[in-house]
Design a protein around this nucleic acid. Sequence first.
DNA 1: CTTGACTA
DNA 2: TAGTCAAGG
Length: 369
Amino acid sequence: MDQLTAGQGSRVKKALNSYNFTHKKTQYMGLDLKPLITTVPIKLAELSGKVVAIDAFNTIYQFLSTIRGPTGELLMNGRGEVTSHLSGLFYRNINLLVENIKPVYVFDGKMHALKAQEIERRFKLKQEAVVQYNHALEEGRMEDAVKYGKRTSVLTDSMVEESKTLLTALGIPYVQAPADGEAAAAHLTKTGAAYASASQDYDSILFGAKRLVRNLAASGRRKVPGKSTYIDVEPEMVEHDNVLKETGLTHEQLVDVGILIGTDFNPSGFSGIGPKTAIKLIKENGRLENVDKIKGQLAEVPYQEIRDIFLKPEVPKADGVRFGEVNRERVLDFLCVQKSFSTDRVAGTLDKLQKAQESRSQSLEKWFG
DNA sequence: CTTGACTA
DNA sequence: TAGTCAAGG
């Protein structure tokens, strides 16, 4: 698994090549478009000057599951307040700003009723993980503790508020989505307010995002937990136009393919149908209603409603986003005074950004000054 | 995840 | 300079 990352070989890769060896449809793990689409590795620098709409929940959740101590516990200050999300957001955003990338965070709004089942499933998985985590801790199996700890992450309201506070202090705008955050992020790319949407999930593509950036981060190599091997995890881009071109599908058909594979709104998908069969069936039959072999199952799925979720999503009304300056005092007060971050580290990191921004404005003055 | 100190 | 690894809070 995961040998399909770039670093050696061709710049453009087809995940499809390694699909047969790596992929099994065991349980729902998010919309699985990966085997059907081409991703292009990109450098962070290629996004310089661009606005990127970032799925906030997706990103914060990622931080909560990866930024942990040696026994799998979250990072916390002396008062027991979780700081993993703030650490991740702070350093990640500084790196983006150093690259002159303009992040806009998009926060999820109200959840669609059809998603409740999937959320419930994830909640149960977390409860199981908590049990396994405690078990592993008691028995001193630290590698297991770390593994299960990652799966216990819960994003709380206060984490959301704190994240917004930090973003504001950094001069980074955020958008409150009326419904699905992915839908709102996709919308921003359609209106031109954003160049791309950034998320680990492929949903943005079904929501019609022009571009999806995955693995939006600075680091290149990442250690495989437990083993002494490394994999390349570099940012990669999926272009909506390319997806349609290469699959030969319309956007509406792509949504149908997604529904066959399984989305958050029908997580079990259709039995016996994986990405490859799904695309074949839609190409041959045009649309869900015409696929004879799924007639029975289709009657049980609110497919028209799911289509509408993707094709006619509820999106934010005003899509103007305003970028601000870094408010050094506020960042230092919030992170260091309130959350007990090291003042030296935070100040040093802010200095690094300031240097980068100053040198950029100086190089501009050479041309225009 | 990201940094920063340390080693080869 | 690149690679490794512990620590961050």
